[in-house]
Each structure stands twice: as C-alpha cells, then as structure tokens.
Design a protein around this nucleic acid. Structure first.
Lengths: 361, 361
DNA sequence: CGGTGTCATGACATCGATGTCATGACATCG
DNA sequence: CGATGTCATGACATCGATGTCATGACACCG
C-alpha cells in the first residue's frame, strides 16, 4: 500500500507538502497541489489511520459491545432484537465521522473484559455497551472517567445510561384502549424477574386510574416467556382464566409481540374471531410480526433505534467534554403506540353509554 | 493512556524488555518479568494497536459492509435479516483474533465507495460485503488482489462469493412433503425480479420429477413481496386460485415465512383449520415466526449464520495466501428443513387417527 | 538599498511499538 | 587461561503521518 513518501517522491515534493494537500491546513501553490493530487490518484494512495492516530492521539473509533450478534441462537429474550440499538448508534456515530468497532460476547459474559481490552488496544475513544433487554448489570470497571454509555441497561455506579420508557409505553397503550371504548383490559405480563414488568404494570394502572376504572387483579396474569412446550400450556391456561372472569375482557394486552402471535393462534383455535370478538395488543412493535400478522397487530414501540442513537449522542458529548466531567444521567426514551387492525374502536353510542355510566358513579 | 515507555521507566528497564515481556518472544529473567508485569498492572497499560500495526503492517481488522443495519426501516426485503450473516462472520473472525469494523450503507449504495475508503484508511486486511438478499451486483472496484468476499451476492468478475443454495432448500422441502404423503403441492413464489425464484422453482420441479409427479403450472402462483394493502389483496386472490383448482392442494409452500404468517390468517378467516385441512410451509426459518406461530411453521432454513461464517473462513484463507492468488470460487451453502407442526403426515395411521377422533365427536 | 512581512516549501522530531544489532556478564571448553 | 557460546538486556532505527521550526524567494516600505 502506497505511503505519503511514495506520493511525495512521484510528485517531486516533500511528504509534508503532500500532507498539506490532503488536509488543506496550509496554503499550497495550486500547480503543486495538482501534481500531488495526480500522484495520489495514480498510486491509489489512502492515508493510514494508524499513523495518523499515533500522532493525533485520536483513533476515530468507538467500541460497541453487544450480545446481540449471537443472541438469536440461544435462549432468546422476548423483546426486539437489540441489533436495532446498534443500528441507531452506528448511524449517529458514522454521521460524526466515527467508525464503529463491534465485538460480541457470544453470550459469554465473562468474555467482556477481554473484549474491552481489545477495544482499548485499538484506542477507542469511547464505549457503548448494549444489553439484550432492559436490565441492571455490573460491568468490569474501566479506567475512571473513560467515556462509557450503557444502552438498554444501567448500573449502581451512576454510569450514563439510556433506557426505554416502559411505563410510559404501556400507559399510552392502555390510555388509547380506554379512549377507544375498552374498559375490561386483560394484561398478560412477563415474570417478576423481568424489570419491565413492574414499569409496564405501573403504566397500565396509571391509565386505568386516570379514567376512573378500578384495577382488577384478576385481569392481570403472569405468562411465561420461554418457548418450550410446558410454558406454552401455561399460556393456554392464562387465556382460559382471562376468558372465564365474570366479565370477559374486550381486549388482551400481551407482554410482547411474540406472545401476541401465539395468542392469535390460541384464540382462533377456540373459534374466537379477531378482532371482532377480541382485540389484542403487543409490545415492541416488532415489525415483522406486527405488519404481517392478520389482522395486523397494534403495538407499543420499543424504541431501540432511538435508544442507540441517543446513547451515541451522549457518548459523543462525553468525549467532547473530555476531562471536564459531564454530569452523567439516565435517559428514558419513549416510543409511540402504533395502532393497527387488531384493536376495534367501539362506536360512539357505546362510548356515550360508558361515559354516562362513569358519571353515574 | 500509558505507553511502553512509562512502563519501562516505572520498572527500571528498557522499553524493549517490556516489549519482550508482553510478547514473550525472547527470554526474560523471571525476576525482571515480574517487575515489568507489576508495572503494567499498576499503570493499566494496554499496548497500542496503532503503533503495532504500523510496524507490523498488519492491522488485525476486517471491514464489513452491510445495509443490514439500516434495512429494517425502509422497504424491507422478504427474507431473514442479513444481520445473521454478520453474526456468523464476526464469530469466525473473532475466533481468529480479528476485530470487525462495521460500516453501513444506510441504504444509500452510492456511499459504498466512501465507506470502502474509510475502511482502507484503517488498513483492514480484507473486506466482506453483505447483501440483504440473494442478488447479483457490481461493487466499485478495489485494488486488484485485495481480499474481498461477497456474502449473499455475486458479480460478473469472478469475485469470491458465498450464496445460499436455494435450489437445494426447496428441493429438500418438497421431497419431504412428498414423502409425508402430499402430492398436490401449491407453491406461492416471489416475483421474477428475485433471483431465488427460479432456483427454488427448479428445486421444486426436481423433487416432483424424482417422484414421478407431473408438474402442474396451475399450482404455482406468483405472489407479491411488498407489504402494502394492494399486494395484500393479491395474496388473497392467489390463495383463492389455489383453493379453486380442480384438485385442491393439501399443502401450500410459501415463498418465505412472512408470507406464510399472512396465509395463516387468510386461511383461518375462511374457516380452514391448520394444519388439519391444509398444511403450510415457509422459507427462511425465521425463528421468531416459525417457533411462535400456532401451529409452529415448517420451514427451510436460509443458512445466513453459516454463510457469514463461510465467507469469513474464505477471507481468512485469502489473506493467509497473500500474494499467491487463491483460485476464487462461489460457494453454495445448504440449510436443513426444520419440520414443525404446520405439516401433516398423510400416512395411513395418521389418517386413521384423525377419522377416529372425528367420528367420536 | 536594507529591513520586514508573506508565501510556499522542506528538514527534522515525534507518536508507540518492535526488529536488528550490539554489549556485558557468565559459564563452558580445549 | 583465553576462546567461544549463551543469556539478558539495551541502543537505535523504523513504520507513516504531521507539528514545529527554518529557509528561500519575492514584494513592499521607508
């Protein structure tokens, strides 16, 4: 590969002059510039970042650690694939002239510190750690003050983090359902081990509360996440319980789109027409599922792309601030609810009836 | 960040000795080694790849260009997300001590040459280009002899490439169906613009042929790919045509899992029970869909992870060969058929079981 | 005409690691 | 005892780019 010396030789100038042409940081005679540019083209010269970053002490690299790239093979979490977070981060970073170095844990958390080491060898200017689902964790400690942003996760040490606003998502979803005339709203949640559970439940309750609808614990059922047959039976039972409550729900909120996809099949097997006899919602806005299920599935978006983008922006700000410590913070990112065919809107008469009833209370 | 000089100073030795300790490439007195190792730990020293690769002329970096990372937002292709190809490549490369630099076209193909430039600045030792679906394309030309592997695509110039064996996948799928007793096999294909169409059709025909089943063009219907409402009507029509053939098919092969997901809904809307009254297959083995549809969906795997891995192996071999030109080639990678609940086996015992149960009602 | 300023360019050192060669301390051998 | 070999270590140059400083050519001014 050609070097700046080769170019200089061919153009009959000093390497420094070539450098000036490339960087445009000092005046160069236009005739000289032309000769140099010709030589560059002739030799297919591309400057070496390694040499540059040695002088400048800036690599232009950002390290991104994720399990995303291997996660789909193993026990996959229920949500959207976190690759969308990588997507968002990569876009923002590329727009700012940074190149992204990815490394993947391969689902072996103990590898993280070795990956970090490799990234530091490349002198990344900052790190983003992407978790597969909203969780709390503890990374091996880096040098103090090294720019690090956690995406989709957070820790105890006050490290900068960007998280999905799960409470708000379920709140907006529930609120929308109520405004469309639903008041018996079934809720299939995930197990307690999942952080999002409580947050979403809070959003659900808040919406009910604002509209004066009493919270009925019978309508909230914990459904399992995992994919094996046993859990599948449990989901079946959960639905039975919902359908057998004194006043049947008119809509079921599923903890995520995958669960909703199963519920489509289960409900139809017992002859229930969708959405006429039962409305359904998911969570994640997993496009492949939501757009292609029939009827298409209403879902609250898990704003992964935006989380990635925000994490990147935060990181860039931290890098820019340099030594001056920016106060780190935890950002919540909200996503919209995407209304699709799986939810019926009851007609105005019903709404009227309902509001009447409410005022009767 | 600490340098080798800092370590040397702290340990009271020369930088070269530190280098020897790090690389273990020459004998060092065990006492000296200990002192040096202590100093390294003390200073959190991490050697700089930039400096190393300047001397060694090896960056340890592989460039990976993809549209994957932005593809889901725009007009998404029908298949599996190509991120799985990245997955496979990253795994193999990491196992070989290489770090992956990703860059994304952001769905703007004209950006490719700029991305290549950036990757070359980082002195990547090779490049993998990942396409979103099986296609022919033309990359901007690199320096001749620069290690490059195309994944999920190929060109006219005989560049090394790794492709899915679409013909074999559909062949195995069709063969399996025949062996399970199906002989009227509907086939919803993708438009002619898609390369996989002809390949898969060939596989379908070959299987029929081997079992002496006549090819009936009426059973093969071109269904659209895109997601808008109009195309959706067309899919409906396609299914009608299939159901109205003189002898109805007992199974419908869909061009991909997403299409199959829609067909589930469409068939059920007209009261057809799955899989009892109609078997279904997809293509891609898009796990989120196949595992979670009810009944679970039989599908031929689009072996993206393996394609990525193979591409990486090919690239590493090319790099290792160096100047000696390895003969480039196009590899086909086959994936298995994953048999799930959506296909009934029509052998006598099953038929008997069914009729028994039905008569019990 | 000499002093001063501007423009275009080059010589040289430097970033951090490591290959090459040299050196000094010992051990071993004839 | 002197020659030779081995071991442990260091001095120095080098990879490719660029910051610093110097230099030569020329214009302009008093």
């Amino acid at each position: 590969m050609a070097t700046i010396y080769d170019v200089a030789k061919l153009a009959g100038v000093s390497p420094k002059t070539v450098s000036r042409v490339i960087n445009g940081d000092a005046p160069v005679n236009s005739k000289t510039r032309e000769t140099v540019e010709l030589a560059i083209a002739e030799l297919n010269y591309v400057p070496s970042k390694a040499a540059r970053s040695m002088r400048s002490q800036r690599s232009g690299l950002i390290g991104l650690i994720t399990g995303a790239i291997s996660s789909t093979s193993a026990g996959e979490p229920a949500g959207l694939p976190d690759i969308h977070i990588v997507q968002g981060a990569q876009r923002v970073l590329a727009d700012n002239g940074m190149t992204v170095l990815i490394s993947d844990t391969g689902d072996k958390p103990e590898r993280v510190s070795k990956l970090v080491q490799t990234l530091l060898e490349h002198r990344v200017e900052g790190l983003i750690y992407v978790a597969e689902f909203h969780q709390k964790l503890q990374l091996p400690i880096l040098a103090k003050g090294f720019p690090l942003v956690l995406a989709n996760c957070f820790d105890d040490l006050g490290t900068a983090a960007v998280l999905p606003d799960d409470k708000n998502g379920q709140y907006e979803l529930t609120k929308g359902l109520i405004e469309k005339g639903h008041s018996r709203i079934g809720f299939l949640t995930v197990p307690e081990s999942i952080l999002a559970r409580e947050l979403r439940l809070d959003g659900y309750k808040q919406a009910l509360n604002e509209y004066g609808i009493a919270y009925d614990p019978e309508l909230v059922i914990t459904a399992a996440l995992s994919d094996d047959a046993h859990e599948f039976d449990l989901l079946w039972d959960s639905i039975d319980r919902l359908l057998n409550t004194p006043i049947k729900p008119t809509v079921i909120c599923c903890a995520n789109d995958k669960m909703a996809m199963r519920v489509y099949g289960l409900l139809r097997e017992r002859g229930i027409r969708l959405p006429e006899q039962m409305s359904l919602t998911g969570y994640d806005n997993y496009r492949v599922i939501c757009d292609h299920l029939h009827p298409t599935l209403t879902s609250a978006e898990l704003p992964y792309e935006a989380i990635g983008a925000r994490a990147a922006e935060k990181l860039l700000a931290m890098i820019k601030a340099g030594k001056q410590p920016i106060e780190t913070s935890v950002d919540l990112v909200s996503g919209p609810v995407i209304w699709r065919e799986s939810v019926t809107a009851e007609d105005s008469s019903v709404l009227q009836f309902k509001s009447t009833r409410r005022s009767e209370k």
